[in-house]
Design a protein around this nucleic acid. Structure first.
Lengths: 205, 205
DNA sequence: TTCATTTTCCTAATATGATTAGGCTGGAGA
DNA sequence: TCTCCAGCCTAATCATATTAGGAAAATGAA
C-alpha cells in the first residue's frame, strides 16, 4: 500500500535563482527573503544553504544574471544596426528588459564589491558592449566617457523612475523616452559634427 | 553626596530625524537600524517608539525632509534666473544636494504610499517648482510632461549612478553632467524654436 | 546488486533586529 | 506640595537569517 515516498525537491542553484528572479520581479527586491524563497521551492529554509551562501549570495546571483541578460539583450538589439539606429536600439532594449523584469533589474544596479571579479567583469562587459556601439562616432578622449555616462544616466534614470512608479501622469511614457533619446542623439551627433569641422579647420578651442 | 542623577535625554522627533539623517548619510539608507539610531541618541531602542511608529516611519520622515529640502534648494537656486540659466541651476542644485546628503536623497526616492497625503504633497511640490521654471518655455500639451520627465530622469539617473559609486572612471564627473545638461537644453530650446515656427506657419502636424 | 560516499534535505538551536507590554520617574502645572 | 503624564526603562515576543548536526536519498565503484 505504497506509502507516499517523500519526493526530494531537487533544488539546484539554477532553479533557486530562477525562483528568486520570479519572486523579486513580482514582489520587489526588498521583499525577497529566504523564507519566501524556500516556500516557493517547496523546501525548508535552511536547505537553501546547500546551494547558496545566504541572502546576499542570492542577490549577487540575481545581479549576475541581470547583467548577463542585459549584455546579451542590448548586444542583440544593436546587431547589424549602425550609429543612431544602434544607439536607439540599445535604449529601447534596456528599457524593455528592465520593465519585463524589474526585480532582476534592481538587483543588477548595486555596485559590485571591490573584490568580486565575476560581478565586476559582468558590469564591464555591458560597458564594453555599449562602447563598441559608440565607437562608430569617432569620439575622442574623455568624450567617449561623457557620452557613455550620459547614455547610462538617461536609460537608468528614466527606467528607474518608471519602475518605481514615479511617472504617474497619464501622458504616454514611450513618447517621453523617445524625446530623451532624441535629445541624446542630437547632442551626440553634434559632437561628431564638430569633430569633422575641427579636423578640417584646425585645433580645438 | 550627589548621586549622579540620571539625565534624561530629551529626544524629540526633530532630534531623532536629525540623527537618522546623519546616520544614513554616513552609512547608507540600508544600514539604518533602530538600534544604531537609539545608540546615536543615547537612549534604549524601545524608547524611540515614543517618537516614531517604527523604522518605516523614520524612513518616511527622512523622505519628507529630503523632499522639502530639495524643493527649497532648487527653488532658491533658480530664483531670479531665467530659462536656461534657471534650468541649469536646478540641475546643479539637485546634484549638489544629493551628493551632500546621499542617504536622505535615497530616502526621498521611493514612491509615496497611495494614502499618504503629506508625502505625496511633498513630491508634488517639487514637481510644481520645476514646472514653474519650465513654464518660461511655453511648452504645449504633453511636451511639458515629456520635458519634466527628461529633467528628472537625467538628474536622478546621473546622481544615483554617481552616489552608488558606479562612475569609477577618473574622467571628470562635472563635465559629464554638463554634457548631459547641454543635451537637455539643446533639445528643450529646439522645442521652443519649433513652436515659434509652428505658430507663424500653421497648425501643428 | 551492494556498500560506501556524497549530497541534500530535515529539525533544532542561536543570533540579531523590530516591536510590544507594562512599569518607574522626573518634572511641569494645579 | 501633590498629581499626572510624557518619556524612559527592562523584559518579553516575534520574525528572519544563519549554523549545527543528523538522516536519508542519490551516486557510483566493486
Amino acid at each position: 500500500m505504497a506509502i507516499k515516498a517523500k519526493p526530494r525537491m531537487r533544488v539546484d542553484q539554477e532553479r533557486l535563482v530562477e525562483a528568486a528572479a520570479d519572486l523579486v520581479n513580482r514582489n520587489g527586491l526588498d521583499n525577497l527573503s529566504m523564507n519566501e524563497l524556500a516556500l516557493a521551492l517547496g523546501v525548508r529554509t535552511p536547505s537553501l544553504y546547500s546551494h547558496v551562501e545566504g541572502l546576499d549570495d542570492v542577490r549577487r546571483l540575481l545581479a549576475l544574471r541581470g547583467l548577463e541578460n542585459l549584455d546579451r539583450y542590448i548586444a542583440r538589439a544593436a546587431l547589424g544596426k549602425s550609429s543612431d539606429a544602434a544607439v536607439r536600439a540599445i535604449f529601447l532594449a534596456f528599457r524593455e528588459l528592465a520593465l519585463a523584469s524589474p526585480g532582476v533589474y534592481a538587483a543588477a544596479l548595486p555596485t559590485a564589491p571591490r573584490g568580486d571579479r565575476e560581478w565586476n567583469a559582468a558590469k564591464d562587459q555591458v560597458t564594453k558592449t555599449i562602447l563598441t556601439v559608440l565607437s562608430g562616432y569617432g569620439l575622442e578622449g574623455d568624450e567617449e566617457i561623457h557620452v557613455l555616462r550620459g547614455l547610462r544616466s538617461i536609460a537608468h534614470g528614466f527606467v528607474s523612475l518608471e519602475t518605481s512608479g514615479a511617472l504617474k501622469n497619464p501622458v504616454d511614457r514611450d513618447e517621453s523616452y523617445e524625446w530623451l533619446i532624441g535629445a541624446f542623439l542630437t547632442s551626440l551627433n553634434e559632437l561628431k559634427k564638430s569633430k569633422r569641422k575641427t579636423r578640417k579647420g584646425g585645433g580645438k578651442s
